[in-house]
Design a protein around this nucleic acid. Structure first.
Lengths: 184, 184
DNA sequence: GCGCGTCCCTTTACACAGTAAGGCGGGTTG
DNA sequence: CAACCCGCCTTACTGTGTAAAGGGACGCGC
């Protein structure tokens, strides 16, 4: 009987990393407790010791991982800060396309939710009326953009996705800028 | 042995309808071939006769169903038309929140894809430069908006979602309007 | 040294998932 | 009436999530 203790001890972070790799390369459908165990050279049930709550908790953790982006809140103009958030959020989501469905479905919790509140405060301090509305619009645009990008990834697209994203982001930001002046 | 023939014959449409109902009320996770069969008063394997390709094809069909919205292409201003599309798209997605993850993940095909091309042409004929970019931005915003709406549905939100959606949509439309005049 | 808890991991077990293969009856056609 | 075929059922197999219990290695007190 080979060594009972695995060569390197199991860790919540190692589990999440392996799960992301598996989901990205083989699809969420093939992310399975047993396969995840195989990837970690461990039996499937070992995972439950580090992630209480089972697969559903794992999914939550993955969603939180790809929606949690540490980004400095710098920049004079609120538009620059918002742009930085949006770019960082898009990049984080694009890094792990396999778990996008989770990120879009599960509500933000923990660190991700805290960051949202922080950003909302930041916008309000910048003097922006209806900061929550603006933030929701930006968040929606980012999440939707990544979704469409990943959707269209398998079919040909002669346009640079980043360029397209920036164009739309600019449009949304300028539109939000005038929102407390213009009337629909 | 009870009657072999079910009271009402099975149909692809009936299957899709029952699947949507099940996913919306019990979650995608509980949408199961056998449970779907139970809901239709039929054995699970009967479904395969009407939906070749199994569960994955069913998922595709559900995604296509909630992303296919018949909407008249009327209105003088292209902004009014785009607004109508976006409202209709949002409404259709919100009607079946259970399958949102499918709609956001699977690329548009068939009728849905055709409608996208049609809308793109419509924008171009309206004299809008970069119609594809604009359309992508709008589509992204709609998809993301529905995602955030459904995410936040389980927690309290003192703001009217429709109002918030319209505000962001207005902002995006005004931003897109000036996009071929302004420079970033 | 030796027992003994404690922590991780494994083993075993079970209910339920998707679905390939084949059976069977009843309506339609000759 | 016979042949046929369509639509549904039955059976069977592999794979999945996970509860429950087992077991081995490490630390501790004595």
């Amino acid at each position: 009987m080979p060594a009972k203790r695995p060569p390197v001890p199991l860790t919540r972070d190692r589990i999440i990393e392996a799960a992301l790799h598996l989901a990205d390369h083989q699809g969420l459908r093939r992310l399975t407790m047993r396969r995840l165990g195989d990837a970690l050279e461990v039996e499937a049930m070992a995972i439950y010791h580090h992630i209480p709550g089972g697969k559903d908790a794992l999914m939550d953790a993955l969603a939180e991982h790809v929606t949690t982006v540490p980004v400095a809140d710098e920049g004079a103009d609120w538009r620059d800060r918002a742009r930085a958030w949006c770019r960082a959020g898009r990049a984080a989501l694009l890094e792990h396309p396999g778990v996008l469905a989770l990120a879009l479905t599960r509500p933000p919790r923990g660190t991700a939710a805290a960051m949202l509140r922080e950003q909302c405060d930041s916008l309000q301090e910048a003097g922006l009326k209806e900061a929550t509305t603006a933030l929701r619009a930006l968040r929606s645009y980012v999440m939707g953009s990544v979704a469409t990008e990943i959707q269209d990834k398998e079919q040909e697209s002669r346009q640079d996705p980043t360029e397209t994203f920036e164009r739309g982001l600019d449009a949304l930001l300028t539109g939000l800028t005038g929102s407390h002046v213009n009337l629909s």
